[in-house]
Amino acid sequence: MNKWLVLFRKEWLEMVRNYKVIWLPLVFVVFGLLQPITLYYLPDILKNAGNMPEGTVIKIATPSSGEVLCETLSQFNQMGILVIVLAFMGIVAAERRSGMMKMILVKPVTYTSYILSKWVSALLLTFVSLSLGMLAAWYYTILLIGSFPFVDLAQGTGIYFIWISFLLTFTLFLSSRLKSSGLIAALALLLGIVLSLVTPLLEKWMKWSPAQLTGAASSLLTEGAAQGNVLLPLTITILLTALFLYLAVREP
């Protein structure tokens, strides 16, 4: 445990040194703030966009607070995943390439605790970033549009975090096996995109799909209750996350 803490601290130091600790949360906060502001100013933006004939009347109903937060979540689902995968694609692969990994593993630490320290620190930073982003969106939504219960926000973000941590664990697994950072990012993004695309199309056969969690989180935010069966995708996702983590800690 003590050795693990040393590795964990080394991971954090690394993330401070390459500024990940600063820019990852900031990026999520920016996307969180951007969504309520754009939706609030949308009529003005359209009016100023030009190319409208004289006298055009645009009427857009102001979205509800839940809808704005749901939009924020879907924004995180695109830009957020991209940023997280890019940030953590080299988490193991880069250290193997630079020879850092060999230097660490000659010391009396196991490969498992080495990978686990990386997994926990990446997960923690992702959780903090996602929460800060959603809190920023929540704050601006309350200011601009209307109140929204914090419990629903926390539940929606929590369910969504499970889906993100699944993709993060998959990225870590790929990073522990492959050499090329580009290939790792491409494969991880491919899994995220394919699951997100195929799940709504083949609703019937994809009830177990981890991507169902994004739908559940969205309906939690817009309607206050998750639609459909959440327990099945939740269990499957957690099992798959555990599987990929197990595969990642096995020495190649």
Partner: peptide
């Protein structure tokens, strides 16, 4: 936003 992110993720040599 996008510019600094790109630098931190793919521009910087780790």
């Amino acid at each position: 936003i996008i510019g600094p992110i790109l630098y931190f993720t793919i521009g910087r040599k780790h």
